[in-house]
Nucleic acid binder design. Structure first.
Lengths: 137, 137
DNA sequence: CGGTATCCTGAGAGATACTG
DNA sequence: CAGTATCTCTCAGGATACCG
């Protein structure tokens, strides 16, 4: 489980790689939503997420599809219909994401509080963590 | 567990908030390293991570400290010494991060493979997921 | 040693307009 | 409906130089 052990360095790369997908806020939302809805069309997803631009949703879905996490099924109809769903791999990803989700729900208040506390201690800045003026200890 | 249920919408905000920290690759590494090392000095961390710039490590540590995830202890000596460690909250975060880490280790190869597969199917582009020219189905 | 301040570049992301 | 193309702008993040 070492982070720096060269024999495990591939894990570091794997983490970075996966985090690039997880860190993308839309990706997590898409996986989460598809996980419980089963399958949705493009605009259904767009409406559900509410805040994502068409461009970002497209890019997000393409990346997820590329990584083998979501399926994309085109129905050659008029008007066109495209449905998205989770692959088996995508479903397994839901487990650790769920863990993170639960942790967030449980400790978010604590973080917000810690943040407010920290900011209150900073003399110069209002709430941004920009300048830290050696106060502490 | 609903992602869109308004009664749970605070969870969405919490997730976004937490993901902004988790999605930061350095944050995860710092938490992981501090978790197993217990406590480290600034340059020890910098050497261990190996690739992070001084600026980014400073910013990362400040944010983690602000969120109540790491402690920062200044020893007013000459030369100065500053030690970083995980708070109790930070230690609890290690659990879900560990889950994600394990998932990454287990499925990274599959993702890489899926990616190669996907790219191989794309006619115009070599390996970048830039242009998708309606091939599929 | 452990930072802070400043400059600079480019990837990320919204808005908009067009297409099969 | 489900995208693609382009333009723009912000800001994350590296390099560098200096300070307590």
């Amino acid at each position: 489980m070492s982070l720096t052990d060269t024999s495990q360095s591939s894990n570091c790369a794997a983490m970075s790689d996966v985090l690039n997908r997880i860190g993308d806020k839309w990706s997590v939302l898409v996986v989460g939503i598809l996980g419980r809805s089963g399958t949705l069309r493009f605009n259904e997803l767009k409406r559900t997420i509410n805040g994502v631009s068409q461009r970002m949703l497209t890019l997000t879905l393409r990346n997820l599809e590329r990584d083998g996490l979501v399926t994309r099924t085109i129905y050659p109809e008029v008007p066109p219909r495209v449905e998205y769903g989770l692959t088996e791999l995508g479903k397994t990803l839901q487990v650790p994401i769920s863990g993170l989700w639960d942790w967030s729900a449980e400790h978010h208040a604590t973080i917000v509080e810690a943040r407010a506390n920290y900011d209150a201690r900073q003399p110069g800045t209002d709430n941004a963590p920009a300048k830290i003026a050696y106060a502490r200890g």
